[in-house]
Simulated scan of single mutants.
Amino acid sequence: MTRPGIEPLIRESTPSIIARKLRRAVGDGVLAPGAQLSEASLARELGVSRGPLREAMQRLTQEGLLKSIRNRGIFVATFTEAGIRDMYVARAAIERAAAAVIMQTDPEGAGAALREVINAADVAPSEDAVREADFRFHVLLVELSGSAHLIRMHHTLITETQMCITALADTYPDVDVRLPEHRDIAAEISAGRGDEVDRLIVAHMDDGIHRLAPGQDGVPGPVPLRRAVDGCPVTRE
């Protein structure tokens, strides 16, 4: 039994540690989209037995980051046009929900914390710094809600976005326009204007899709093969 105010240490299981490492490797592009994974090779690289590795890979398969194909093996996920749009729909829903929670708790403090992320990138505005700030902004936005469920769901979606952008790092468009959009969102959060925050988040998510898959009358339509939505490679199944 612990005393009030002292939280017990949480021991992370071996499969959880392995899953975290694999998730990072997928997000960073070390394990590229479409790559087949060798259980034996990965176990050897990570210095772990195949039992916990298999459990970790099953977790990532359930998250959609890996794909198991019967009689062929396990592969890093790729993205279809519909899957990319669905990913952004899900991200928008989670981030809007997180922002709504923040508006009921500490919008001024949250806005200040989000501005710190943007300001850190302004100090040395390289492409890598801007991209890192881009991801960190969205991760922090959801973390500030304090919702374990939103954080868990968002974590997988952010990893998917990272792996997409990494895959097309040389062609990722307009990275420098992201920080001003983030700055506007942070400002509206600080001001407590929830409706405007919601509108800006929706516009922020829609921007990538409408920019690269405009369709007709502003409605996202079919995208040519190997085009990108916020940097995500597009394939057809």
Rank of each mutant, 00 (worst) to 15 (best):
R3W: 12
P4Y: 05
E7Y: 15
P8I: 03
P8S: 08
P8D: 04
E12S: 15
P15A: 07
S16A: 14
I17W: 04
I18Q: 12
A19M: 04
A19G: 13
L22Y: 09
R24G: 11
R24H: 13
V26R: 11
G27D: 04
D28I: 08
V30G: 10
L31G: 10
A32E: 14
P33H: 13
G34W: 12
A35W: 10
Q36D: 08
Q36K: 13
G47C: 04
S49H: 04
G51Q: 06
G51L: 05
L60Q: 00
L60G: 02
R70P: 07
R70N: 13
V76P: 14
T78G: 10
E81C: 07
D86T: 04
A90S: 12
R91W: 00
A92N: 12
A93N: 15
A93S: 14
A93Q: 11
I94V: 07
R96C: 10
A98L: 09
A99N: 03
V101W: 03
V101P: 03
I102W: 01
M103E: 02
D106Q: 03
D106W: 06
D106F: 00
P107R: 10
P107C: 06
G109I: 01
G111W: 00
A112K: 05
R115Y: 00
R115D: 03
D122W: 08
A129K: 06
R131V: 07
E132N: 14
A133M: 09
D134H: 13
F135C: 10
V142M: 10
E143H: 12
E143N: 06
G146R: 03
G146V: 00
S147N: 13
T156A: 06
T159W: 06
T161Y: 04
M163R: 14
T166D: 05
A169T: 09
A169Q: 09
A169V: 02
D170R: 07
D170A: 09
T171N: 02
V177S: 05
R178T: 13
D184S: 15
I185P: 03
I185M: 03
A191P: 13
G194F: 00
D195M: 01
E196H: 12
V202C: 11
A203Q: 15
A203R: 14
G208P: 14
P214D: 10
P214N: 08
Q216T: 13
D217F: 08
R227V: 01
A228L: 08
V229R: 09
P233I: 10
T235I: 06
R236Q: 11
E237Q: 07
